[in-house]
Computed example of a mutant assay.
Amino acid sequence: MTVENTEDLFVEGLQHIYYTEQRLLDALEELESTSSTEELQSGFSEHRSETEEQIERLEQVFEAVGQEPEAAEDPVIEGMIEAHEEFVEQEPSDGALDRFNIAAGQKSEHYEIACYGNLTPLADQLGLDEAADLLEQNMREEQEELDTLAEMGEEFDYGRIEA
């Protein structure tokens, strides 16, 4: 896609976050299955349900701009997923993997917040008030999840990581 104007820039960004959310839907299942505590498993499961709703909102945004939902590969999220796969292959202790999963979740939340933070003002500039509201809602949910993960990281028992 050649970006020639604000709408093109918006649609391209929308395609990237749509791809990101779809990839994270699967990644959250992996984070849930590789976590050893019920609290982490439950958190990733709940966020997976929230991500499904966010994908639906993104599809509404595509509709608002007269576009069919289309995903464009995002190398940033691919790199994050690859880093997790490589860490898991090292067969770390449960505690180390749990802490890594928390950090992986935080990284993806920061990235998603940045994406939504860039798309929302573009939607505003294009006069897409409903789209801006939907994107803002997704961004608020990502911020709440980041806050939850940050708290989990602060409360993490590092004694669980075997030396």
Rank of each mutant, 00 (worst) to 15 (best):
E82C: 08
A64K: 10
T6P: 05
A123Y: 00
D98M: 00
E86S: 11
A132C: 00
P69W: 07
Q106E: 12
N5C: 07
G117K: 08
F156E: 02
E145R: 14
I17F: 09
E82V: 11
T2M: 09
L31N: 00
E85F: 05
N138R: 12
T2H: 03
E68W: 01
T6A: 14
E78Y: 00
L9P: 06
S36I: 10
Q137V: 03
A150Q: 11
S45Q: 12
I161K: 06
H16G: 09
F10T: 08
E4I: 08
G117T: 05
S35N: 03
G43C: 00
E155S: 15
A131T: 05
M139C: 09
D133E: 12
I17E: 05
G43L: 06
E46V: 09
L119Y: 05
L25G: 02
E73R: 14
L122Y: 06
Q22L: 12
E38T: 14
E89H: 14
A71H: 10
P121C: 02
E50W: 01
E141R: 00
M152N: 12
A72Q: 15
G153T: 01
G95I: 03
E85R: 15
T120V: 13
L128I: 04
A123P: 01
D94V: 05
V11C: 00
Y18Q: 06
N101C: 04
A163F: 03
S93L: 03
A27R: 08
D74K: 05
L146C: 01
H47P: 06
D133A: 13
L146P: 04
H84D: 14
T120D: 01
L119F: 04
K107N: 15
D26C: 03
L119H: 04
D133H: 09
E141Q: 09
I161V: 11
D94T: 10
E86Y: 11
T34D: 12
L122K: 13
A71Q: 13
G117N: 03
A123T: 04
E91M: 11
D129W: 04
H110W: 00
P69T: 07
E46P: 09
D129G: 05
S45L: 09
S93A: 04
L149G: 00
R140W: 04
I17M: 04
E4H: 11
L14R: 12
G105E: 08
D26N: 12
V3A: 06
Q54S: 14
R23V: 13
H84V: 07
V65M: 01
Y158I: 12
E7F: 06
A104P: 01
E82P: 06
V61T: 05
S36L: 05
E30K: 15
F44K: 13
T51N: 07
Q67C: 05
